[in-house]
Every structure is written in structure tokens, then in C-alpha cells.
Design a protein around this nucleic acid. Sequence first.
DNA 1: CAAATGTATTAGTCAATGCTTATATAAATG
DNA 2: CATTTATATAAGCATTGACTAATACATTTG
Lengths: 118, 118
Amino acid sequence: MHAFDVLGDPVRRRILELLAGGERASGDVVEVIRREFGISQPAVSQHLKVLRDSGFSVVRAQGARRLYALDPEPLRQVDAWLDPFRRFWEPRLEALATKIARGKRRRRLAAEPEGDPS
Amino acid sequence: MHAFDVLGDPVRRRILELLAGGERASGDVVEVIRREFGISQPAVSQHLKVLRDSGFSVVRAQGARRLYALDPEPLRQVDAWLDPFRRFWEPRLEALATKIARGKRRRRLAAEPEGDPS
DNA sequence: CAAATGTATTAGTCAATGCTTATATAAATG
DNA sequence: CATTTATATAAGCATTGACTAATACATTTG
């Protein structure tokens, strides 16, 4: 499943926002999502599976608990896909500052095998 | 259709990349997409409709031609949704430069009614 | 160990999406 | 004006995705 398909679902976007705040047990996520979206535990578990399988999150076991954490890599690729469009909304002067940041980042990662984000 | 759903389709992402290079007639887009994805003219036309309806592009007529251009707004919102996640891949010092840029931008747009991108 | 808790998986349903073929509409052209 | 060109829309079909209910599996607890 492509990163953008993963982000197409509002429940998954919300889960990612939660994980951005730090590691969370599956049950915690279920509770929040249940409250906000009114869907069942299996539904949330299935979304967590999608996030795992697509690389957006990693899990570790702690007893019976499953602790989910964000893996930022796919989001970084989404961010990278936006690069050629940024000139449409980032005014020139400010683009300079951002270019410095992004340019450095890109040099740092130049050696990595990078799947075409399209 | 939510911005992320629109971007979920590879054909639509490719069309947006084309439009990033400037205004294009429908027929031009059809030709490129046909070559790269092997789908029909109506299929492409339907994707162009999705892009129109979701605000990613605007059209003007020129005789029988329809000239499509990028409207960056939805992409900018996607970019904004990524903001809380950037700290995971933008190192501290560089984050400063970006923050300056994004901060300015946000102040400039503070008055606009901004739909929750989630 | 038996019951309870935390989480994942399976099977089945329903709605949404993307495609094709056929056709409609409008402008250009001979 | 008839034909061709440029594009959009409609109808039908297949696939996919998100849900629920039921159940499985593993860990904790009494």
C-alpha cells in the first residue's frame, strides 16, 4: 500500500498524530479512536496493521501489551515528494532558508537507496 | 474527496507533477499518461475531473482545448499537516531556518479560513 | 489452572473507486 | 454544412477497502 493511500484514511492520520506524541499501547489508541470515530477494536487493530505493514510504525511487546511507535520514514518520503511543488507557496526569500535545510538533508541521505516515492 | 485520497492515485500524482511544469492541455496530459500508464482518454479525463473537484487544479477554455493548471492550495495543506512530524527528520539547527520560513508563512495566512486538513 | 484481559485474525458484507466502452457536446476545418 | 478533432459524461463491471461479529491467541491474575 502506497504511503498516500495509507494517509488517505482519517483514522490512520489520527493514529499517526497520536504516535507523534510518543509510544502508545494498542489499547490506548483503541480507546481514543473509539471515542472519536466510534469504531470497534478490530477495526483499529486492522488500521494498526496497515501502519505496521507500510512502515509508518513499529511495535514492541511489553507483556500482553503492544507498544506502537512512529517510524517517520514514509512521512519523510511524502515530504520529499512535495519538494517540487514548494515553490508555489514558499516565497523566494524564505525558500532560501528552507533550501539550506533541505539541501543539507538531501546530501546526508544521498547514498541511501531511495525508492521512488511516486 | 480528501486531499490525501486524491494523492493516493499514482496517475493523479503524475498529472500534478506535469502541471507543476506549467499549464497543459487535456490532450497533452492524456498523451503522456497513456504512454506511461496505458489507460484510456476517458480514464484520464475522470482523473482530471477529480483534480478539479478537489481544488488541485483549475481549467480555462481555449477554443476546443481545456488548459489545466495547478492550484497549489491543497498541496500546501498537506504540507501543513506534516508540520508536527517534521521534528522527526529535520535536525534542530536546520529546523530553525525552516521554522522562520513556515512561521512567516503562517502569520501571513493567519486571517484566512483554513479547513482542518485532517 | 481457570478466568480475565489485551490484542490480532478471519470471514463476510457493503460502499467506493477506477477502469472500459459507448456516447454526448462543442469547436475547428475543408 | 458535414466531418473531424478535443474533451467530457454515462453506464456497467471488477476490485479494493473499511467495517462488524466471531473467534483465536497470549499474558496476567486470583
